[in-house]
Nucleic acid binder design. Structure first.
Lengths: 194, 194, 194, 194
DNA sequence: GATGAATGAGACTTCATTCAT
DNA sequence: AATGAATGAAGTCTCATTCAT
């Protein structure tokens, strides 16, 4: 099915993701979103209550895909260490290959729009959410393999470096290749392993 | 020297820092900056070319102070490990006690305004800048004490977790006390030590 | 004949009367009229040229019914005074029991839409229209019973108080019961009787 | 003092009164109000929070002047009947000479904006407001001179006919000259006198 | 005949910037 | 130097109307 036959609301969502990640929310007038979507301004308001609703909808789309990606990469047959490395690697690779999604998420979480959600499930400290593969991992299989630290620190030592490197990668300061990703994942593990 | 006698441009800068960190660039009309500064709108334009110039000036002010703070906390008499711990601790404590500055920097770097500067000196990968105490440390005293990794990864393993925790702290998800800061600094070291 | 089998254009007219009287012309988007009518937006445009035509059509419907009601209540066997009282009472009771119609008329006449028609037949000074029972009454049977005043003043002393009270009734400032209606009709008569 | 030197907010208020009375609230875009005021759109928002606030401000201006006019025309030395005639005459003459004010008030009270105030003091049933010369009159001097009717009916018999005639006058259906005004005032009195 | 998605003109409002005082 | 009233471009959103299905 060609893009021309896609759901119009999906067309708008993708165009908005592009526009937002390139220009930011405030430099993305609805008129421009409309142009990029190939629809009229009014049509956007048929699918989304207002600009804010559109932003949240883009977030949901991005977040859902990210979650599915990571969840699918979790391999319970691996050792605790190897599953950790695997998860970190998958997450980093995905975001590195999807810079628009990464930029959007960064912007969303640091904006008033995302302050509710605080952190996305995969980037967050929502410690009760066992559906998060990372939280699940830290709460289960790795017991005894890790230093005794608060969950929030496990998460900070995992996501913090990744996010930092992804930013540098976007800025062109760093080339985030497989080797560097591997090194990063191992360093993260070393930071928290017993 | 009381605030009343300060340079008028400094008064504006401080008021702008407050306003920007609390409300964001786009919810900070110049008229409001003027009110909070206790000056007229027109006066802001005497000291700064336009709103964007003011934003960059606030950044310079914040960045300068941050640099000075960290540079002053560097203690060459300590061992490589201890100096690292010391630097990380100082930086984290400073930003934790100055949430306005942290919020401003976060916002600045994720905005079009800060995309030029890429990363502030202390949060960055500007690898040639030996005046940055971290770069200086990784390039000198710690030689041989660390795994052989790219500088950018050293920096990512240092700043990434801090920034992540500071965000969580601001969101109220985590209490960033001395103990957690100490644990974090040590974990960072473990991540990169040989 | 149930409402479901009514003429589609009548269904639209009734829904529009409701909507207009409750929300006013400008807070009644055609889409909402469609929803309340249970028809599609496009269908409204099959029966009415545009929104303005619909408004005029609602007026005609309301005005026709009102005329018929009053005309039917005229009783030529009564004395001039009693027929006057009877007409005033009927008109007031009808409008008091049909607040939607009254609200609509008020709105219509005070809007650009109704400025053409000036005044509805029953509320007007259309002095040549003998089909209007009031005009008919003032021009015939009551000759000699009334002070010598212009017809427009007869009409003003008749309809003015009624309209005023109906407004107050709608506002909840007054309870327009049978007693008050009777008192009003008599006061109107006293105002103009010889 | 020429109009050019008037308070700018007054200039806007007068232009708005004109525009609203001629075209109605909904056919008076702020851009047109600005043009007629000879100011930029933005300037209107310096003086009034939004269009609604402007509408209310126009009402206050009109209502204040009307109140003052009527209050000043009250003559306590006259008999109850003569003071009543005097008040009715003054009110009618004032509104007849100020059709813009009359149109505005009609529109205001029949709009959502004026539904709070229900009725203006001089056109209303606010029965406790003795500062209203009419209410004051009906509650005092005329005791015993009037039929025993509810205050709301006194008011309806007073204002109803006037408003009706003023509408007809605006429509050109009637010429509201001194003679007709006098006849009306007397008919009103006859309607309620004992 | 009926439908309702699509359109885009136009309304309201904000706010960076200017400039006469 | 300081002031703040004035400006108008630009943004968000609504809704009457059209037209392909």
């Amino acid at each position: 099915m060609s893009i021309a036959h896609k759901n119009k609301s999906d067309v708008i969502l993708y165009a908005a993701l592009k526009q937002f990640s390139e220009n930011g929310f405030h430099s993305s007038p609805v008129s421009q979103l409309a142009t990029r979507s190939g629809v009229a301004v009014g049509s956007i308001y048929r699918y989304f209550d207002d600009k804010e609703a559109l932003i949240h909808a883009v977030f949901s789309m991005v977040d859902d895909t990210l979650q599915k990606t990571i969840t699918e990469s979790a391999d319970p047959t691996l050792s605790g260490r190897d599953e950790f490395i695997q998860l970190v690697t998958s997450l980093t690779e995905y975001l590195n290959k999807h810079p628009q999604e990464f930029k959007f998420l960064e912007q969303y979480y640091s904006s008033p729009y995302g302050s509710d959600k605080k952190h996305a499930k995969f980037l967050s400290d929502d410690s009760v959410d066992l559906s998060n593969p990372f939280v699940n991992l830290f709460s289960g299989k790795t017991k005894g393999m890790l230093k005794d630290l608060p969950l929030s620190l496990y998460l900070a030592m995992t996501f913090g470096p990744i996010i930092f490197l992804l930013r540098d990668s976007l800025s062109g300061l760093v080339t985030l290749d497989d080797c560097l990703i591997q090194q990063t994942a191992e360093a993260c593990w070393n930071a928290i392993k017993a």
